[in-house]
């Protein structure tokens, strides 16, 4: 019985790493092929079959993208949006999460339900109304229109993440700070936030990914090409030269590189919810 269990365990112990490697490869192959396609020398006729690594690798495709479109300008626009939206999101969402954690149970439940309901509204449903509202407010063709959602914390989900984090902090810690004469802002800044560092990093990363990748909002609200963010510029590049695959893939790789970098730097904060820690661990 015991030896049988042990053998079965042994077989699984060797199979599992293999399965993990296979799964990882399956999910990484598309990205590898993105890089491979971006390094294909321009003008070489397309060939059938899979090219895993072009020889010679045409690194010159990357600077060539910058000559075709003003990538630096679009990168600056993206950076502008992210630089404003990410800190705003963290502050507003953590304020709301903190307040929800401290308010009486009844309000907390009601507003949590409201947040869940709001998460269920597809963006598609508000495209049109937001467009008309921004038009009325004179925010159309203004990069600030892309930052506006951050004023409300960007997503109810981020607020809930902070709420769950702050609920895990023993209430006595908040009480003690209050008895020392701290106001709500003081307790938030001195007690709550320093204890919520993993959640802050996770929300900042999620917000960064959201604003950096956002395509529909710039498409709808920004008309001038020189105010557009990177994803839109990539689509413009596609329309400029739809079959120049090496340059298109180089452009896609350039737009993707920052998010991959940020994700890899911070992934442990939201991919490691082993028992009793991480996002939802209670």
């Amino acid at each position: 019985m015991r030896s049988n269990g042990g053998r079965r365990h042994g077989a699984r112990a060797t199979l599992r790493p293999l399965a993990i490697v296979a799964v990882a490869a399956l999910f990484l192959v598309p990205l590898w092929l993105l890089v491979a396609a971006s390094l294909r020398p321009l003008g070489r006729p397309l060939s059938r079959g899979v090219e895993w690594l072009p020889r010679p690798a045409a690194w010159g495709n990357y600077p060539a993208v910058f000559e075709l479109i003003d990538l630096w300008r679009h990168a600056a626009n993206s950076a502008f949006v992210v630089a404003l939206a990410v800190p705003l999101t963290v502050v507003v969402a953590s304020w709301a999460g903190f307040a929800l954690a401290q308010l009486p149970q009844a309000w907390r439940l009601r507003l949590t339900l409201l947040s869940f309901a709001a998460m269920g509204v597809p963006l598609t449903a508000v495209w049109l109304s937001r467009f008309l509202m921004f038009k009325e407010a004179g925010l159309l063709d203004n990069r600030l229109a892309l930052v506006v959602p951050a004023l409300g914390g960007t997503s109810p989900f981020y607020v809930l993440l902070f709420l769950w984090t702050f609920l895990r902090v023993p209430a006595e810690l908040y009480e003690a700070a209050r008895l020392d004469g701290a106001g709500a802002l003081g307790v938030w800044a001195r007690i709550a936030m320093p204890l919520a560092r993993p959640t802050i990093v996770a929300v900042a990363i999620l917000a960064f990914l959201h604003y950096w990748s956002s395509f529909v909002e710039p498409l709808l609200y920004i008309q001038s090409l020189d105010k557009q963010t990177l994803p839109y510029a990539l689509q413009a590049l596609h329309q400029l030269d739809p079959t120049n695959w090496p340059l298109l893939m180089a452009g896609a790789a350039l737009v993707t590189a920052p998010v991959v970098l940020v994700f890899l730097l911070g992934q442990r904060y939201f991919l490691q919810p082993f028992r009793g820690q991480g996002w939802f661990g209670r």
Binding site: A24, F27, P30, V260
Partner: peptide, 20 residues
Amino acid sequence: AGRAAVYLPTVVPDVAWALL
């Protein structure tokens, strides 16, 4: 590493992913 690999395609911007 496996978790990171599985998550990685999710962070690729929609437009880049569609073009790829």
